[in-house]
């Protein structure tokens, strides 16, 4: 009786293991190995490891790309280095305060005859305000460039795949890191995570990935 029990249990376990091995290799076949890298001018290396598909409730399939973002430099890095703001000279700070005070006095003494002359703007402040205007223009331009260079996945039909936030789940969402110009990485910091996209229609073919002027392609069979 004991032997029969042992035999049945062994049989069940062997059959289950055989099915699991089958599933394991089936799963391996479902994945596409990419293992390609691109590096931005700020020294951020993006490595795409592998891609796999997951069916969803809607009319699309989700492509989940396992990837790693790494800062290859020994200093902290911005995903996009913002322009450096000009330093406000102390005299300009004082001038701002004086000017504010002058405005307040005018408002209080609007009906009175006594008026004090407005504070004179120092030369150095004229230069500072010019620099500040230039900085604001550069900042807005760099954000515009960053928006244009966001991480994009082009499907085999060359349409841009929309990011599928629902499929990221508890894993680290790399798209939100890559697509935020204020994201920073510490010296040599590496982050493993996933990028997820909605793929509608044809899923086999050559995919194109672009990010801030860099691009790479990979094949899904």
């Amino acid at each position: 009786m004991k032997n029969k029990e042992l035999l049945v249990i062994s049989g069940i376990i062997i059959v289950s293991i055989a099915i699991l091995i089958g599933l394991f290799f089936y799963q391996k076949g479902q994945k596409t190995t990419i293992d390609k890298t691109m590096t931005t001018s700020e020294g951020i290396k993006i490595t795409l490891h592998e891609a796999l598909f997951r069916p969803s409730d809607s009319n699309y399939e989700s492509m989940i790309i396992k990837a790693e973002v790494q800062n290859t430099r020994n200093t902290m890095a911005y995903l996009a280095k913002p322009p450096t703001p000009p330093i406000e000279p102390r005299t300009c700070y004082n001038y701002d305060n004086d000017y504010q005070q002058y405005n307040n006095n005018i408002n209080i003494n609007v009906n009175s005859q006594t008026t004090t002359p407005p504070p004179v703007i120092p030369e150095v402040c004229l230069a500072y305000y010019k620099d500040k205007d230039e900085y604001n223009n550069k900042l807005s331009r760099s954000e515009e460039l960053f928006d244009q260079g966001k991480f994009k996945l082009y499907t085999p039909t060359r349409s841009i795949a929309e990011i599928d936030y629902a499929e990221i789940g508890g894993k680290r969402d790399l798209s939100s890191i890559l697509n935020n110009s204020y994201s920073t990485l510490q010296a040599n910091e590496a982050i493993e995570g996933v990028l997820s996209f909605k793929i509608i229609g044809q899923k086999e073919g050559t995919y194109l990935v672009t990010y801030r002027g860099n691009e790479l392609t990979f094949e899904v069979k």
Partner: peptide
């Protein structure tokens, strides 16, 4: 053996 959250993992 089935690290990815997929249908195959559910079956396993």
């Amino acid at each position: 053996f089935f690290p990815d959250d997929s249908l195959t993992r559910k079956f396993a």
